[in-house]
Amino acid sequence: MAIPVYAGPLERVWYYLYRFICGCIFLFLILPILVIIPLSFNAEPYFTFTPEMLSFDSAGYSMRWYQDMVNNEQWLHALKNSFIIGICSTLLATTLGTVAALGLSRAELPYKGLIMGLLLSPMIVPLIITAAAMFFFYSAPFGISEIALAKTYLGVILAHAALGTPFVVITVTATLVGFDRNLIRAANNMGADNVTTFFKVIMPLILPGVISGALFAFVTSFDEVVVVLFMAGFEQRTIPRQMWSGIREQISPTILAVATLLVLISTILLATMEILRRRSDRLRGIKN
């Protein structure tokens, strides 16, 4: 919105002042994330800009923390764990969540409010309570300690899947709001069975919602540390868990290299989300 021609001097001052204030707030939002990127190339083990860095002397920069990360067994193991747990829990959450969203979007479903409340509860309950509850539960499910899942991959995956499902349910139900149910009737009419209808008609239309729900579920798992802190063993340490001990115990600039990598990953995820959103809007005929 350009400044109107009839604006008085006071309004002019306010117009620029307002933009300046907004600029400062945007800086507050983005600067902390951007600042760690150059710092991760620091040649010295400091968490601040050295004089060499400020004078753009190449001696002030190095890749040593990235080498450190790549050569460190623990970080690599944690990265692998994060992806294994993230992908498995996402698959589980997306499958369960999408099917449930199909049911939730039907008008005939009884007790819809109650069911919705229950299904979204993992998103509502503070993580510390969830983590404590899951620790007790998976240490001895239903009081049977022989089937304990704490300190196993399966336990962490199931816990993360439960945390991720609400996001899938929300995004897929949102996509189904604009869904024309006549398409299903048409498909059935022309002889398609339910499975064919699902994969050929419903799925392509709700796919953007499913994928963005899956991305949310993945990020939830990928970023989750409290549950891992309580119920994962040393073997199941993920990247956030490793960063947690890195911050608490011996903070080394390697953590900045890892953080930069994670910012890169989240940028890619954000871009994917944005592309999906635009595609979905276009498909559903919403003009930007």
């Binding site: 939002l29 983005i30 902390p32 994330i33 600042v35 760690i36 710092l39 968490f47 601040t48 990020v219 990928f222 970023d223 540390v225 990247i239 956030p240 960063m243 947690w244 911050i247 903070i251 953590i255 900045l256 953080a259 994670l262 910012v263 989240s266 940028t267 995820l269 954000l270 989300m273």
Partner: peptide, 18 residues
Amino acid sequence: LLPFWTSLLVRTTSWIVL
């Protein structure tokens, strides 16, 4: 949205550094 999508641990680390 970028901060929204960035890991919590990353953002906390940046604030410690800053």
